[in-house]
Design a protein around this nucleic acid. Structure first.
Length: 239
DNA sequence: AAATAGCGCAACCGCAGAATC
DNA sequence: GGATTCTGCGGTTGCGCTATT
């Protein structure tokens, strides 16, 4: 529900759906120059036909330079499960304990990976679980129990067969600070896809760690489009 | 080679609480 | 003190991709 009349007013020309490269650049540039906050007016001032909410979400979950990409590590995984056992679905609270990870990312990770494993564990353990155990265990104990079970399940799985879906973000496996990937996971029109998949990484570093590395074969931009995009972003951060 | 099932992710939605007018 | 606006959160959806049939 957006009771905000401004929003409904904006809705006449508000854009939805995937963000374009141009929109990203505008947002990044604007925030680089003016800082973040007051998202509705930011969206207007920057000339973006997006709601403030949309801008905020895009920035926080994707464009922010300190967002960490790449696979959730085993340590992070355990931490997530531990914190979830403690707090439940308080994703933003959990995310605060995982630097660079967003609540959205953790939430997605939980739903797509951990929950799946929990179900597997649950179904395999229901046959052995006694009703007495079920009745005496508190819900948080139960959470914890499940989390531990899933943790061991996951760690063995990841050691052997678990192949996180790298199809989208092969360039994000290094846990380096990053900028939006041009891979298919990004929102941009996807005829970039093939070469984006081949370009394993660009390694642009946010302002607070400004040591751009574009030296190895892993760190080149394959197409002029990508090159331009990355350089523009880089310039935006430098401003 | 085509169809489709399943998966992961980005983005949207609705809501509630905080901040501001 | 009430109305309005903004912000942040959690749940959900839709799209693009790979794997499988």
């Amino acid at each position: 529900m957006d009771k905000n009349p401004n929003n409904s007013q904006e809705n006449n020309e508000v854009r939805k759906g995937p963000w374009t490269m141009e929109e990203d650049l505008i947002l990044i540039n604007y925030i680089a120059n003016h800082g973040e906050g007051v998202w509705n007016s930011l969206a207007r001032s920057a000339g973006l036909k997006r709601t403030g909410k949309s801008c905020r979400l895009r920035w926080l979950n994707y464009l922010r330079p300190d967002v960490r990409r790449g696979n959730i590590t085993a340590e992070e995984e355990l931490l997530i499960m531990e914190l979830h056992a403690k707090w439940g679905n308080r994703w933003s609270k959990i995310a605060k304990h995982l630097p660079g990870r967003t609540d959205n990312e953790i939430k997605n990770y939980w739903r797509t990976r951990i929950q799946k494993h929990l179900k597997q564990v649950e179904s395999s353990s229901t046959s052995t679980t006694t009703s007495r155990q079920e009745t005496t265990m508190s819900s948080s104990d139960n959470h914890r129990e499940q989390a531990c079970a899933a943790a061991s399940h996951l760690s063995t799985a990841s050691a052997s067969t678990q192949q996180p879906n790298n199809n989208y973000v092969s360039n994000q496996q290094q846990n380096t600070p990053y900028l939006p990937s041009m891979s298919a996971s990004s929102s941009y029109p996807v005829d970039h896809h093939q070469h984006a998949m081949e370009a394993t990484s660009y390694n642009i570093v946010p302002p607070h760690q400004m040591h751009p590395v574009v030296t190895t074969t892993d760190n080149f931009w394959v197409t002029p489009d990508e090159d331009l995009w990355a350089m523009q972003l880089f310039n935006a951060y430098n401003n």
